[in-house]
Each structure stands twice: as C-alpha cells, then as structure tokens.
Design a protein around this nucleic acid. Structure first.
Length: 524
DNA sequence: CTGGGGACGGGGCCC
DNA sequence: TGGGCCCCGTCCCCA
C-alpha cells in the first residue's frame, strides 16, 4: 500500500513537472505572439499617423485656399465698391525713381481710417484703464508670400479666429487684388497682411498711449518665432480717433481722418515719450542666410487726401534748417502716389503730423494740403538710399536681428533701431541750448556746439587752418595734396568736392550726378 | 563755374 | 548694451 502511495506521489510529481514545462512553453509562445502582434500593431499605428498627418495637411491647404479665395473676393468687392480712385502700392524706391534699389524691397500703403478694404473689425484691447483699438499690419515675408500676395483680414484679438490664427502662422496669404491698371508698380510684390498680432502690439500701444508714463524698460519689438520676416505696424483705428482723442491713454494714432480731432499724442522726445515710441516700433526679424533681409520694404509715406494737415514742428522737432534740397524728392515721391483719402500709413509721421493741427510754422502745406515732411524726408531719403545700398544687410558682420519698421534696415541692437528711426519720425531729442537747433543724435549736437564755442580741434598739419569736423579737415587736405577724387564721366574735369561734381554734371546733359571717386577713401 | 569752408545727417565702429 | 566717436555724404554759402 505504501509502495502504491509512493508511486502515486511520483506520478503526480512528474505530471506537475510536465505541466510546468508545458505552461512555460505556452507562456513563451504567447509572449512571442504578443510581441509579433505588437510590432505589427505599432507599424499600423505609425502608418495611420502618417496618413493622419497627410490628411491634416491637405485639410489645412484646403482651408487656406478657401479662406484666401474668400478674402480675395471680399477685398476686391470692397476695393471696387468704395474706392473709385486707385490705391497705388509702390515700391518706394522705385517710386523715387532714384535707381538705387533692386528687388526685394517692397512697400505698402495702409488703408486709412475710412479705408475700404479693411474689415471693420478693430482690435479692441481691454487695457484695464481703457480700451484701445488698433489695427495691425503684418507684412509677410517672401517665403510666405510665395504662394501669392496676401491680405489678411483684421480681426479683433478677442475673437481670434482659429482659422485666422492658422493663417497667420502659416503665412497663408489672402489675396489682395489690386486693380491692375492702377497698380503698375508692383502689385505682385505688394503683400499686405492684416493681422491681429496682438500682445506685443497691445503692449506697445499701451506704452505709446501713456503720456508721461514711465517707459517700460523692455523694448517691445515684436518677436516672432517664425523666422519668416514680418514687420508689424499698428495704429489706432481712425474710426475711433475722436474717442481716442480724448482718451487719456492717448496713442500713437496714425490714421487721422483729415479734420478729425487730433489725437493727443505727446511726442516730446525730451520727456522720453518718443523714445518709448521708437523703441516700440521696430520689429525683430532674422536675416536669412543669404542676407536678403526682410522682404518688406517700408512704410510708404502717403498723403491723406486734401486735408491741410499741419503739425507742430516745434514739438515734433524736425530738423530746422535741414530741409534744403530734398523736399522735391519727397514731393516727387509723393506724387507718385495717388492721393487717396482711403490710404494712410502706419508711419509715425502721421502721428507727428496729426499731432497738432494748429501750428504750422515749419511745415507749410501747399494748396493741395500737402505737408512738407521735407525735414523728415531729407534724412529719410538718405536712409532710403543707404538702405537700398545695403538694406538690412549693410554694414558689419554682426547679426542684425532688429529691423526698422519703416525702411527695413537691420541693426544689431534695439537702441540702434531706435536712433535710426528718428530719421523717419523726425524726432530730434537733442537741442542746442544756444540756438534751439535740434539733433537726432547727441554727437551731432556736440559737433554743432562747436559752432558756438568756436572749437576747431582738427588742425591741418600743413597750414594754419583748423576745422571743427574731421571730415572737413580731410577734405581740406586735398587742397594740399591736389587730390581730386571726383571725376566727371562726360569730360575730364575732376573735383575735390563730390558736390562740385554733382553741380558740374548739370552742365552736360542734366544727368544726375555720378561720381566715381578714384581714391580708396571715397567709395560710396 | 570753380574752389573751398561750414555745417548737418546718419551709419558704423569701438570701448 | 549704450554712448562716444569716426567717417562719409551732402547741402549751403561765399569768394
């Protein structure tokens, strides 16, 4: 009996071991199957995800296409319906007919207060203390523009359309179709994109609107994650000019309807408001590897209708005495733009111009209501020429990430942009205590003051003469060296002054001055 | 018309 | 980063 029991025990033990082996085998088999299936499953998931992405992309493209067509239709209808005269979007440089510029620069004209193509959807920003209404332009860069020129409809921040946001991010253009007969300059290149760019601009306007408020230490240039180049301009809605005119926050309202109550923008740079302003009104961008810089050209200074606009030069601090000569340039340029009350710009010039409708001591308007921004344009033209020569990429090797919103010139630090933009806005914060002359740069004031002090620190080593400026000494020394680096291309005459050559060239065929300095020090 | 100086604007470089 | 300075371009004026 005992033997029988022991046999049974052994049998059970063997069965148990067999069962265990079988179980292990089964588990291994199951694991193998699971692993295989899992691999297959993951593969399927991956493929599905790829398909999803593809479909999503297609969907986006379709949405963008639809949105663009819709915008195009809307814009065209509005333009045609409410704008009998044309809007010219001109290449500013081409408009100047100065021949300095090559492609890649574009300008735009911002619709004015009673604009026609702008969607009446002001950006209403609750600032706590008040409501600010603004419109923002984002100018798309070339890459985003590749799909075609675009206009983006404005939209208020609070009701930002997801579709619209997607458009912004993707740069999907909405086609703004100009009347081809009225936009001969370069309608193709003119990309106007309205956008609700928002927070930074809101902050910018906040600061701009705060008279006497301490400047925010941080510059509020616009930073885009998207490397595509955009320039953002903003302004108050002219339609709200009246209300903003009394708005204690004020603003840098640029779209004054002629005759409207001026917005109380205090542009007194002495108080630093303009510094606030200017530090706010540039955009940060990125040069592409080719150094082509931004595609956007600059704000086109545009005359508004027939309004006898004036401005207080005393407050605007335009450069007295610096208007010689270049007024005609500006006028020429402006005449290339058809006066269209529907068109305005975001140029702070407008803010300045509209700043004070009373005083007009140095900004006379002609019978056509033109404002002679000669002082501004005097220097602006120079800046334009320089921008044309080098544009955003001119100058040193330092990366230029900060761009003037007016001329697209690139600088390597915000302060430089701020200083540079005084060229465009006519701000001259530095005033001479003895003659009230004003200067945009401190150094220029310092040089100027030598006029009063009689200081002439630069002496000629070969004669008794001394000069207040190094360049004048340098020029003078040509008298001794006999150097005449400027030669006429029409005759063999040579000049030591570039300006002499310029004058001389008029003797020939009235051609524009062309000088070919033949010394290394005067290439220009 | 030419030669030359005064002066300003503005960008770039350097510290 | 910002101020000081340099340098160039330009306009004006005068002899």
């Amino acid at each position: 009996m005992a033997t029988c029991n022991s046999n049974v025990m052994i049998f059970h033990t063997q069965i148990a071991s067999i069962m265990e082996v079988l179980a292990n085998a089964a588990v291994a088999e199951i694991c193998k199957l699971v692993d295989d299936d899992y691999a297959v499953f993951r593969l399927e998931i991956t493929q599905s995800q790829k398909e999803n992405r593809t479909l999503r992309r297609k969907l986006q493209l379709l949405e963008l296409k639809v949105a663009r067509e819709r915008a195009e239709r809307t814009v065209r209808e509005r333009v045609l319906a409410s704008r009998p005269s044309s809007v010219k979007i001109l290449d500013r440089y081409r408009g100047m007919a100065r021949g300095h510029l090559t492609g890649g620069h574009r300008s735009f004209v911002k619709p004015a207060g009673h604009n026609t193509w702008r969607d009446d959807q002001p950006i209403t920003v609750d600032e706590g203390s008040g409501t600010s209404t603004q419109h923002v332009i984002v100018i798309e860069s070339a890459d985003t523009e590749a799909a075609g020129p675009g206009v983006k409809q404005e939209r208020s921040e609070g009701e930002e359309d997801p579709q619209h946001s997607r458009d912004i991010r993707t740069g999907a253009p909405h086609v703004f179709t100009e009347d081809p007969t009225t936009t001969p300059a370069q309608p193709r290149d003119s990309s106007i994109t309205l956008n609700a760019v928002l927070k930074s601009e809101t902050e910018t306007l906040k600061r701009l609107g705060r008279l006497g408020c301490p400047p925010t230490p941080r510059s509020e240039y616009l930073l885009y994650g998207n490397p595509s180049h955009r320039t953002v301009l903003s302004h108050r809605d002219s339609g709200n000019a009246l209300q903003t005119g009394n708005d204690p926050t004020c603003s840098y309202a640029t779209e004054m309807i002629p005759g409207d109550v001026p917005v109380g923008l205090d542009t007194n740079p002495i108080r630093g408001d303009w510094n606030q302003y200017s530090s706010s009104v540039y955009s940060e961008g990125f040069l592409d590897k080719k150094g082509e810089g931004l595609v956007v050209d600059e704000v086109t200074v545009k005359e508004e209708g027939d309004a006898p606009l004036t401005w207080n030069a005393d407050e605007a601090h335009l450069g007295e005495g610096q208007s010689q000569g270049n007024t005609s340039d500006f006028l020429d340029y402006r005449e290339s733009l058809e006066p269209n009350p529907n068109i305005a710009t975001h140029s702070p010039l407008h803010a300045l111009r509209d700043r004070d409708p009373v005083s007009t001591s140095m900004a006379p308007s002609d019978s056509h209501g033109r404002i002679l921004f000669d002082q501004v344009l005097n220097s602006n033209n120079k800046a334009r020429a320089q921008a044309g020569e080098g544009g955003a990429t001119s100058g040193g090797n330092k990366e230029k990430r900060f761009f003037c919103m007016f001329c697209n010139k690139g600088f390597n630090c915000p302060q430089k942009v701020e200083i540079h933009q005084r060229v465009h806005v006519g701000v001259k914060p530095f005033s001479c205590s003895q003659c009230q002359m004003r200067f945009s740069q401190a150094w220029n004031l310092k040089i100027h003051q030598r006029v009063h002090t009689g200081e002439k620190p630069y002496s000629c080593s070969q004669c008794h003469m001394s000069f207040a400026q190094t360049c004048n000494l340098k020029r003078h020394q040509r008298v001794h060296t006999g150097e005449k680096p400027y030669s006429c291309t029409q005759c063999e005459k040579r000049f030591s002054h570039q300006h002499q050559l310029k004058i001389h060239l008029k003797v020939h065929t009235g051609e524009r001055a062309q000088y070919y300095p033949q010394t290394s020090g005067h290439e220009s």
